[in-house]
Structure formats: structure tokens, C-alpha cells
Design a protein around this nucleic acid. Sequence first.
DNA 1: ATACGTGCAAAGTATTTGCAAACGG
DNA 2: CCGTTTGCAAATACTTTGCACGTAT
Lengths: 149, 149
Amino acid sequence: MGSASQAVKWTEHVDEVLARAGLKRGGARQRIIDLLAYESCALSAVEIEDMLRDQGTPAGRASIYRVLDLLVDHGLVERVSVGQGLARFERTHPDGEHHHHLVCEHCGVLMAFDDPELEEAIESLPERLGVRVEHHDVVLRGACPDCED
Amino acid sequence: MGSASQAVKWTEHVDEVLARAGLKRGGARQRIIDLLAYESCALSAVEIEDMLRDQGTPAGRASIYRVLDLLVDHGLVERVSVGQGLARFERTHPDGEHHHHLVCEHCGVLMAFDDPELEEAIESLPERLGVRVEHHDVVLRGACPDCED
DNA sequence: ATACGTGCAAAGTATTTGCAAACGG
DNA sequence: CCGTTTGCAAATACTTTGCACGTAT
């Protein structure tokens, strides 16, 4: 499945969930959803604001934060804390698949990665610790392949 | 080795590193270092400010942030991002040992944990991904043993 | 018609910076 | 002495909230 059709699928899923919750559609929210649908990696609220303004369809900062909160509450978007004093957001995959992040300490870029062995270690953690785990975040800090050289 | 002697050892290590860097000692910094030495888990800047005031030896907020930055720069303290809109700090262990955190979504408490299997999965990650990894952070979100019931 | 959605402006909270005074080696 | 450390106040950055108006169903 190509990323474009994944994006469409996610958008439809979002619309359905929100409609089912009795919510109405609005311009700013739809544009934010469209942005997130085609963006594979985490965006900050301010980046979203800039991108919307640049494409000629600006939205109020408050609306952006409210929409992101709403989407997080419905499990459609995930808040990613990479610890740079701001929150980042990215769409969740309907099938539960997800990835983690590497922050390059040299160029600051955020890179996504995915690792079954790590995932498995985390899956089995709750029973070893005797706690219930709802979500997990792994953030690596180091050098991306480009800066590695 | 008891935790008290570990704390003393860490304090001495910090003093030595800073002295070697040509820095001078100051009241506020020493008190912050003492606090961190005896605190096993991550504190925020504001919590440190409150604790210092409560023990009758207040320090300016700016100094607290500056001292924490300094300690992070020298690798003596680690910045822990649990994603609640604030940064938390805890001392690093000289021998490289470290732990991760679970944030209880019910009571908000921060709980430390340590897991060899997880650590091993992370250790072997860099070669699989082709990146260099300097630090890593794992944050779990769920319910602590107290709230589990 | 009646919620819900949006934008603006103001408030709130965490953190950083500038500067002058105090202090340590 | 000279450079570091400190505290205060002001500035900055991200995020939240209050409120009046617009809009979808």
C-alpha cells in the first residue's frame, strides 16, 4: 500500500471517528488533518502554523492546539516528546504499528526508526515490572547517517 | 555500597570535574548539587527551587537553570523528558548505570525502573540502524502498582 | 436553531538573558 | 584582583483560556 493511499485511509478514519463523536467539520481542522495525513514524521504546533500560512490557508494558533488536543484525545494523533521544550505530533496508524525517534545532536533532524527486537523487549516489560503500560516512547540522541561521517 | 556513600562519591566527582574546568564554587550551586546527590529520581527546576526555599536556603530561579545547564554540559546530570511541558533532571551514575521512567497517568507519579533485556535491545540498536547513539530515553505511560488496582 | 468550530487577544507557565553586585581562589 | 557566580527583573517561547462571532448539520 503506497503512502498516499495510507494517508487517505487515515483521513477517512479520522473523519469517521469524529463524526461518530457527534462533532462537526471545520475548515481549520480539516486542513490540519490533511497536513498530518501526508506528513510521516512529527510536527510541532508552530511548524503546522507556518506550513498552513505558507500554503495560503492560515489557522489561528489556538485552533491548532485545540485540534491537536482533540485528535490526541481520540487516539488519532500521538504526542511525541523529544525534549526540546516543545511538543510534536504525528498521526497514529490504525493498525497499531508505530515507530520511535532519533534526534540528531548535530543537525537537529528528527529521524524515525522501527525495530522489532526493541518492540518485543518493551512488550514483555509490563509483566516483569508488575505495571500496566498504555503507551511508550523511546528517544535516541546521537548522530544521523548524514552527520555520522 | 549504600546510597549515602554513592551520593558522597557523586558530589566529590562533580566538584572535581568542575574544579578541573577552572570553575569556582558558589553557594547556590553547591546546594543544588547536594540536593541532586540525595535525590534518586528526576526533579524539575521548580521543584528544586521549592525544596531549597523550604529548607531555608533559597536560590534564584535563573541560577537553578544555569547550574542545571552547566551540570548537563559536563555530563554530570541528565535531562529527562517525560513530556509534561517541563524538564526534569537527575544525576548520572559515574559507572554508566542508569534507569528509565514510568509516568503514572492516574496519579502523575514518576517511577524509575531498570531492565536488562530492554537495555540489551537498545545496546544492539545502533549497528542495526547504522547510526551512532549517544544517549537514550525510554518513557512508559500507564498505571503504577498503587493505581493498578 | 443549536451546538460545535474558529480566531483574536490576554493570561499562564517554563525557561533564558542582561546586568550589576557579591564572592572565591 | 579578576573572573566566576548570583539574584533580580525583563524578555522570550510555548501553550492554554475566555469570549464573541461564524458555520455545519
